[in-house]
């Protein structure tokens, strides 16, 4: 185990640096630079202004100089400075991180728990009415575009019923603190988390149902039935536990993309998350910021992968890490 971890960590460092290097050159392929975008937004500009911007951003340096300074930054875990936003990249990410973690955490937790339960119920009642209803609902949510659900929820619950705010993360200038603030954020969180959660929920429902039905067909389940174990116990102890592996795998993939957030949902609900920040940085050619976010994302992905591997061994003792 210790040997496995040691080897993994070595590989992880290698992978992360590799991704950083590829990102650096990949992003340079996008036509246009930050100075052109800013001059364009300004509606009018002068060549002197653009030259001043390029000098400020370091874009007047040859590519290899830019690359070496980037590499030095990566190796010292310095994410650089976003000239457009006028802030260090690490600070910008730290500002947006809580919003992203809250939204993604809530929606994934909702999706796994509710989706898993629904899938479990559907599998236990396979072929009967409950299964048909659950499967149909899951299919509808799976097939519906996320932005459509989002806009529909806003129209119904915000505009029509006036129960929930249209967007944002907290009431502006409310002066709320402590529990009041938490309640306010929770109110703003409901619609975006639900929008995102409903889509994920469908995935987990379908996955859980399929995976459980597969395990139900295996010999050891028949043996358990034959020796008179009660169906409830079979479902929970024999089937569910074995069916969890694909769920964990999917969860791992999803957690890996957590920092990317959900650009569509963040945009529709004006949620101040990292996904929107990255998306805007791309259009603004704010490469330092974009590289910083991608770097953090790659770190999360590799560590979640490691965690998933470890989780396998807990769920299924037959799996060994070597």
């Amino acid at each position: 185990m210790a040997r496995y971890l040691k080897r993994s960590l070595g590989q992880i460092a290698f992978v992360i640096i590799g991704i950083a290097v590829i990102n650096f050159f990949l992003l340079r392929l996008a036509p246009g630079d930050a100075a052109q975008v800013m001059a364009g937004e300004a509606g009018s500009a002068t060549p002197e202004y653009m030259a001043a911007l390029r000098q400020q951003f370091g874009l007047d340096q040859p590519l290899y100089v830019q690359f070496l300074s980037y590499l030095k930054n990566v190796l010292t875990l310095n994410l650089g400075y976003s000239f457009r936003q006028g802030m260090p990249v690490s600070e910008l990410i730290a500002l947006r991180l809580p919003a992203t973690l809250l939204l993604m955490g809530t929606s994934i937790a909702f999706a796994v728990s509710v989706g898993g339960t629904l899938g479990f119920l559907a599998a236990r009642h396979a072929g009967r009415l409950a299964d048909t209803v659950i499967s149909s609902v899951a299919l509808v949510f799976y097939a519906t575009p996320v932005f459509w659900i989002g806009v529909m929820l806003v129209v119904v619950f915000s505009v029509l019923l006036d129960w929930l705010p249209v967007g944002g993360m907290a009431s502006i200038e409310s002066g709320l603190t402590g529990l009041g603030y938490a309640a306010d954020v929770a109110q703003h969180l409901i619609l975006p988390a639900l929008t995102l959660g409903l889509f994920y929920l469908a995935i987990y429902t379908r996955l859980m149902r399929a995976s459980m039905l597969e395990v139900y067909g295996q010999d050891f389940v028949r043996t358990a039935r034959a020796k008179g174990v009660r169906p409830r116990r079979i479902a929970l102890r024999h089937v569910l536990r074995n069916a969890l592996l694909p769920i964990v795998t999917t969860l791992g993939v999803q957690l890996g993309s957590i920092l990317g957030g959900a650009i569509l949902v963040e945009t529709v609900f004006a949620w101040p998350g990292l996904g929107r920040l990255a998306f805007e940085a791309l259009f603004q050619r704010d490469l330092n910021l974009l590289l910083g976010i991608l770097f953090c994302s790659s770190v999360v992905v590799v560590f979640v992968n490691l965690a998933v591997d470890l989780a396998y061994t807990v769920l299924d003792p037959r799996i060994e890490l070597s």
Binding site: V151, V154, D162, V166, G167, I172, E173, T267, F269, A270
Partner: peptide
């Protein structure tokens, strides 16, 4: 007071205007 709100989605802007937010 003036509160300027950043609302990136056009449909959400329409909803916020319509609702009076």
């Amino acid at each position: 007071k003036l509160v300027f709100r950043v609302i990136p989605d056009a449909a959400a802007r329409a909803a916020a205007i319509e609702k009076g937010e």
